[in-house]
Amino acid sequence: MIDGFLALYIFMLAAFTGKEIIGRVPVILHTPLMSGSNFVHGIVLVGAMIALAHAESPLAIAIGFIGVVLGAGNAAGGYVVTERMLEMFKSSKDKK
């Protein structure tokens, strides 16, 4: 278990980090960046996997299973879509 105040510090520092790292994003990258951050919260899959691993009752297994399916969909779909969008960002020098 994470101590209350320590958790608050983690929340706060992560929030500042999130704002700072995209601080100077050019408009052309807004949509890919939204898609990329959408992929990153696909990490929810890990939480769903652990929840399902600890599930005992049929209901808990069903809920955990739904969580894993949705989380995996978020991660996989988010990755493919973002990668396809970013594949387009080549400068005229990259192309022959």
């Binding site: 929340f11 999130g18 951050s37 959408n38």
Partner: peptide
Amino acid sequence: LIVAGMVVGAA
């Protein structure tokens, strides 16, 4: 999850 979720939440 806390770090990744919060970074995305803020960004």
